[in-house]
């Protein structure tokens, strides 16, 4: 709000790697929907991209839950339907999951009434996809979904409410053992001839070895995107890079002082809901 001089003075940054590029624990690094722009009645594939520095057994869950405005918010998700749908229609659960968890969904036709331009858009908050990664047993909501209560039952309603309002239960989940991410998708009418697509992400130069402390360039090509690089150690010099129109963009990664493998994750976002993920490993000598 109001600049304060000491904060400003103390805020002088050094020239080392940006600490925001280092992932120290469990994190959902991206949700990649394909296509990233959907219409009612479409089928959609969603990948939940997870990074876990610690390793070990994790559970991953993803779900569509577009909360409606006003009091409807407490009723849960628009995807749950005017008549109760099975949870599996809008959720995906993976036990002891890998780095990528994929779910396929069908966008309910009745959401067409909420499409902007059809006169009832005020109540619509763009379709939201949630991605949750938890160490096994840390998130009771995953167990509740896995139990797959009967649609319309009290348990089902309770689960849907929880999916619609994660802030109700998230404070009770250990922060270090969980990561919840949210992605807003582009929503369009069925007759829209143009649909956005996910941007490409090509590694032009991706070294696999580096000396300790060395600053290593990584070169990528993509579309008009913002590039967010992450590393399990060392760190990229900037937290984000801009890229345009397929021109190469160079990311500077500084290797840590200690030797060993370092995992890298590069995510691009086109600000239209489109995303892509690149993963790699560098051995520090």
């Amino acid at each position: 709000m109001i600049a304060w001089w000491l904060l400003a003075l103390l805020g002088c940054a050094d020239n080392g790697p940006d600490p925001d590029t280092v992932i120290g624990n469990l994190r959902v690094v991206s949700v990649v929907a394909d296509p990233p722009e959907v219409a009612p009645g479409d089928d959609i594939t969603v990948d939940i991209e997870v990074y876990d520095r610690q390793g070990g057994s994790i559970d991953v869950m993803g779900w569509f839950c577009t909360p409606l405005g006003g009091s409807a918010l407490t009723g849960g998700c628009a995807e749950a339907g005017p008549t109760a749908r099975p949870l599996s229609a809008f959720t995906v659960v993976a036990t002891d999951a890998g780095l990528t968890t994929r779910g396929t969904f069908h966008v309910p036709e009745e959401l067409a009434a909420l499409v902007p331009g059809d006169g009832v858009a005020d109540d619509l908050i763009r379709p939201v996809f949630w991605g949750l990664a938890c160490r096994s047993g840390a998130c009771p909501v995953i167990d509740a979904v896995r139990d797959d209560p009967a649609p319309g039952s009290a348990s089902w309603s309770d689960v849907v409410t929880q999916l619609g309002r994660p802030t109700l239960w998230l404070p009770d989940v250990p922060l270090d053992d969980s990561s919840l991410a949210t992605r807003f998708l582009m929503f369009t009418g069925a007759g829209d001839p143009y649909r956005a697509t996910n941007p490409p992400l090509v590694a032009v130069s991706a070294p696999t070895a580096a000396d300790a402390g060395e600053i290593v360039p990584f070169v990528f090509r993509s579309g008009d995107v913002i590039v967010y690089p992450f590393a399990s150690d060392g760190g990229f010099l900037l937290a984000s890079y801009g890229a345009a129109n397929g021109l190469p963009v160079t990311l500077q990664w500084q290797a840590p002082k200690r030797s060993g493998p370092v995992d890298l994750v590069v995510v691009v976002e086109d600000q239209q809901g489109g995303s892509a993920v690149w993963r790699g490993t560098v051995t520090v000598r």
Binding site: V28, S30, L170, P171, S178, A181, R183, S240, E269, S275
Partner: peptide, 19 residues
């Protein structure tokens, strides 16, 4: 304290949830 947080992938920012 911050009890947990939600990662907004579109803005690439974490939204804290107060304890």
């Amino acid at each position: 304290p911050i009890a947990n947080r939600v990662y907004d992938l579109d803005s690439r920012r974490f939204a804290p949830i107060d304890g």
